[in-house]
Amino acid sequence: MSDARQILETAPGDEADVEHEFGGGVMGYTVGLGLAALLTATAFVLPALNLVWPPSLPIALGVLAIAQMGVHVVFFLHVTTGPDNVNNVLALAFGALIVFLIIGGSVWIMHAMNANMMNPAMHM
């Protein structure tokens, strides 16, 4: 509505100031594409190369995935930690917490049940 507000808030997906950036934002998307491609390629190639100690592989892949999600959020969705983005980031953090609770909680609970109740599926 007012100009002061305009500065303080950005819609998710909008860049704070597209006009003043070199290439009108094409640069941002291209950098994002490059980083994402690099991370994806690493994730696909890494297990085959035997560069990583095998038991730590899931953690390495998880870190790569989270890093790539971060790249997408920043370069494609333009959700950043800037002051104009507080609400957007808070909403994202809330969502991430819920996703973590649901997946983590379910896996933990069901694993504990399978272990205690001797679910035949676990012994196949």
């Binding site: 998710p12 997906g13 909403a91 969502g95 819920i98």
Partner: peptide
Amino acid sequence: TGPANKRIVTGYGFWIFLLSDFV
């Protein structure tokens, strides 16, 4: 300073909807 402009409101609403989709 009062209600946000329509672009922010729409974008934010859709952002919340996407979070529900993530769930």
